[in-house]
Amino acid sequence: MDLYAEEILDHYKHPRHFGHLDNPTLTYHDTNPFCGDEINLELRIEDDHVVDVAFTGQGCAISRAAASMMSEEIIGMSLDELKEWDKDNILDLLGIEVGPVRIKCALLPLKALKAAVWGLGEDDTVTR
């Protein structure tokens, strides 16, 4: 049961930064129709740095844990730093081997983050 390491289960059962911000600067909504996963990511940006983050949505343990771990990690980081993020940042956080099918679950939060920091309009990809 390597996929469900203790830390992942902990983030799944007790997701950090789950909810909404009062005054988000950037929000982004994305879905993964193949799984029925959905994320709504909200960022509070000051001086080009992330000062707060929140997310809601539904998803499997992997996607929820990835969103929770990512949220903890990005606070304090600059937008330029986040633009450099790629899948390895997420996989390092998760600390598990993710196969070709579940990788989509793991990377949905990153996809939302990247779109948000690159300033893609939320409406561009809202599919529901």
Binding site: C35, G36, D37, G59, C60, R102
Partner: peptide
């Protein structure tokens, strides 16, 4: 429990089931 997690745990026990929308969204 998300169906992918059901299938993921069952897989670790050698049990293969399908999870998702089964091409019937």
């Amino acid at each position: 429990v998300h169906p992918h997690d059901i299938a993921g745990v069952l897989d670790s026990m050698g049990i293969a089931i399908r999870a998702g929308h089964h091409c019937a969204q």
